[in-house]
Write a protein that binds this DNA or RNA. Structure first.
Length: 135
DNA sequence: CAAATGACGTAAT
DNA sequence: TATTACGCCATTT
C-alpha cells in the first residue's frame, strides 16, 4: 500500500482513469498518465497496476482487480508488457474474454491490434504516421 | 538509510 | 531504422 497520502491520491486517480476504458478496448500507460496531467510518468501508472489489490486478496477494496480493468492497459507499442512470468499470459486471457485478439510478434511478444485502441495512444493521429516513404 | 528495480515513453545517437 | 540514455518515483532489497 502507498506510504504517503499523495501517493494514495495518485493511485486512486490512475485506477479511476483505467475504469474509463471501454469494454473490449485497450489503451496505453502513457495515455493514462497524460490524461492525469503527468505525461512523463507512464512508468508510475505501471506501478499502480502492479500493486492493484487482487479481488481475492481484498474483495472489498475500493479498487481491485475486479472493478479495475487493468488488462486493458498495454504499452504504447501495442504490446503486452512482458513483466517476468505468467502475468502477461493472464492479461492475454482476460483480453480474449472481451473479444480482444492477441497475436504474437517475432520474439514471442503478445501484440494487440492497434485497431482495438479505444483511446488513442500518445501519438495523435493528426501527426502523419502513415507516410512510409517521403514523397 | 542508500541503491537498485520496474506493468513506460521519448529524445538523442 | 535500431540502440542507448534518461526522466519518473513508489517499492523492494
Amino acid at each position: 500500500m502507498p506510504q504517503s497520502e499523495e501517493a494514495a491520491m495518485w493511485f486512486a486517480a490512475v485506477y479511476r482513469a483505467v475504469q474509463e476504458v471501454p469494454h473490449g478496448k485497450v489503451t496505453s500507460y502513457g495515455h493514462i498518465a497524460t490524461l492525469l496531467g503527468y505525461p512523463e510518468r507512464p512508468r508510475q501508472v505501471g506501478i499502480c497496476l502492479k500493486h492493484l489489490p487482487s479481488p481475492t486478496d481484498q474483495p472489498d477494496a475500493r479498487y481491485n482487480g475486479d472493478n479495475v480493468p487493468w488488462q486493458r492497459i498495454i504499452s504504447a507499442k501495442g504490446v503486452i508488457s512482458p513483466r517476468g512470468a505468467g502475468g502477461a499470459a493472464r492479461q492475454e486471457a482476460a483480453l480474449a474474454q472481451e473479444g480482444v485478439q492477441v497475436g504474437r510478434g517475432s520474439l514471442g511478444e503478445r501484440t494487440v491490434d492497434l485497431a482495438m485502441y479505444g483511446w488513442f495512444p500518445n501519438r495523435l493521429p493528426s501527426d502523419d504516421d502513415e507516410s512510409e516513404d517521403e514523397v
